[in-house]
Design a protein around this nucleic acid. Structure first.
Lengths: 136, 136
DNA sequence: CTATTTGACTTAATTAATGAAAGGATTTTA
DNA sequence: TAAAATCCTTTCATTAATTAAGTCAAATAG
């Protein structure tokens, strides 16, 4: 279903999703129009889910990047899930996992103080293990 | 340094990084040119690190999405890091962390068999805890 | 085996967006 | 008060995207 040209298109768009269709076409040896048609197909088939940006969290004021493994206290996860929804700017992803814990939280905080406050509030609903990202 | 308009621009670009500068301007009540100038500044200051796409890993042939906590066996991490570099398509991010383990691997595999082969090879360099993503 | 359909691409023409230059308005700085 | 800087707008030339029409080769049907 996806041929080599499609894969190269996905690679180029992963590196720079704002590239013009003309440039993209040149890179994969197609006209801009042909490249554009392929991209539309990749969108419609759901392979490309969206176009987004990579942000420097530190420069945005989020000095701390962390993963938190969640162990919910009760079998009912709703209180935890509602809590997470209320913590908007801090939460990047809440992965439901199998393995150790029930969820893996990818998140960010402006300061140790904000992280600490978050953990105190989190502890109302769940136990956790904290992993702070040092690099990459 | 970043005002409300900048934040709205980042929000819009996070939702759709291929939006035209004209449309982006309309959304934040600026002309296309003014919006474009702000975006250039956000790029130059390093707040925007790049433009990329969200891919459906399943439709790309990667049915399994996982996080693996790594416990390196020796104090020398080089063998592990070299191994990771050799596993190109499977590895999405290798986060160096403080907390439980030395690294947190975000990765994907086409099948349980590929995952199993990877884990066997990984075990030459490190112990691990596997968390498979079920949702989101 | 030939005719038709289909898919992927190109070319051409129109429409729209980008980029560069000039200038206005407001705030900062001296 | 004057000069400089910042942020924005307008205009226009350049460049890209979009739409429509048409080519070509491979697959499919009669």
């Amino acid at each position: 279903m996806l041929d080599k040209t499609d894969m190269r298109i996905l690679e180029e768009l992963t590196n720079n999703s704002r590239i013009t269709m003309k440039e993209l076409g040149e890179k994969v040896h197609l006209t801009g129009q042909a490249a554009s048609e392929r991209v539309v197909k990749l969108e419609n088939s759901g392979v490309i889910e969206g176009y987004t940006i990579d942000l420097n969290q530190t420069k945005l004021g989020y000095a701390i990047y962390a993963f938190i493994t969640i162990f919910t206290q009760s079998a009912n996860h709703q209180p935890y899930l509602s809590f997470i929804k209320s913590q908007e700017p801090y939460i990047i992803h809440n992965y439901k996992i199998s393995g150790e814990g029930c969820y893996l939280l990818e998140c960010r905080f402006p300061s140790n103080e904000a992280l600490n406050d978050f953990l105190i509030a989190l502890n109302e609903h769940a136990n956790y293990k904290l992993s702070i990202v040092i690099d990459k």
